[in-house]
């Protein structure tokens, strides 16, 4: 039977745990905080529109005869192959929704902790900088994963289900792995991108502006350099351009521009590495002003 105790302070008899997953409470709290925002919930629902549309596309692709009256000439566009999955995972709308959701739910991840001096509360616990970063990264990864990895794998399963055979899987046995690899790449990239932006300012509004500005200015810079130099390598300046080049390589389809995919991969990886080192330097239990 449970002990009946007087209200007040009592010593805790148990043993404090040395958990390996110290980051998890931070991730859980971050996800909960994001869902507390009504606008976030609405946008989160809207962001699944492409997935639903693509799912309908998968269904129609298997029932072309039934939908002939409304899908005339759509045989090519409704062809489900690796390019179909690449298109889904590198849709401008998906990238935009990731940015929008992260602006609402991710901009304050570190910025709010700086602003309200909560960092010292975290680091007064047996928590390392890596635990803290993993906790915050988990929030971004969760949402990016929900928008990319989960729908893409479901689309793959739907294709098998609607076709009623494993022929598609036997034709492209590497496709699930490609989906996982590219989604993981997107998760890592957007995590670094959002956390870096969030650690730059204490003001979440500036962070939101930064998240959109850097992304779209990179695309504008690409356009300017292309006009001046007429070189396809200007794509290396563009975040979405590089992501699409990597997607083309992972899904083994022809890239939009004749630029080696590994250059785009290197640019994005270098960005992630630099972000990681910047974040490690920036995060301290105490703000030391010299």
């Amino acid at each position: 039977m449970a002990e009946v105790r007087e209200k007040g302070y009592h010593h805790w008899e148990g043993q404090l745990q040395d958990k390996g997953r110290m980051f998890w409470p931070i991730t859980r709290t971050g996800i909960k905080l994001a869902f507390q925002r009504k606008r976030f919930k609405f946008l989160f629902a809207v962001s699944f529109m492409p997935a639903i549309t693509f799912a309908v596309g998968v269904y129609i692709s298997e029932r072309l005869e039934d939908f002939k009256f409304m899908a005339q000439g759509a045989e090519r566009t409704l062809q489900v192959n690796p390019g179909f999955f690449r298109t889904y995972l590198s849709l401008d709308f998906i990238f935009f929704m990731i940015l929008l959701l992260m602006a609402l739910g991710g901009a304050g991840l570190i910025a709010d902790d700086f602003r309200h001096k909560a960092i010292q509360l975290y680091f007064a616990r047996p928590l390392t900088r890596l635990d803290y970063l993993l906790g915050k990264a988990g929030v971004v990864m969760f949402f990016v994963g929900l928008l990319t990895l989960v729908p893409a794998l479901i689309l793959f399963l739907l294709k098998l289900l609607f076709s009623g055979s494993f022929k598609f899987f036997l034709d492209y046995p590497w496709l699930p792995l490609s989906i996982i690899i590219y989604s993981a790449f997107l998760m890592v990239f957007f995590t670094c991108y959002v956390l870096l932006a969030s650690s730059v300012s204490k003001n979440r509004n500036y962070v939101i502006a930064l998240i959109f500005a850097v992304y779209y200015l990179s695309e504008i810079a690409r356009g300017i350099f292309y006009v001046i130099f007429r070189s396809p390598y200007s794509i290396l300046l563009s975040i979405p351009g590089n992501l699409q080049q990597v997607a083309a390589a992972v899904f083994q389809v022809k890239p939009a521009l004749a630029v080696p995919w590994y250059l785009s991969f290197l640019v994005l990886s270098a960005f992630c590495l630099l972000s990681f080192f910047f974040l490690r330097r920036k995060l301290r239990g105490v703000e030391v002003i010299r």
Partner: peptide, 27 residues
């Protein structure tokens, strides 16, 4: 540790905030 500064995690109620701090300490 009770810091000098006013510090908290915005958006959380007091019980969730305190429980989170307890969990991060190993509870």
């Amino acid at each position: 540790y009770m810091p000098e500064d006013e510090c908290f995690i915005p958006g959380l109620d007091a019980v969730t905030f305190t429980a989170l701090m307890g969990e991060l300490s190993g509870l």
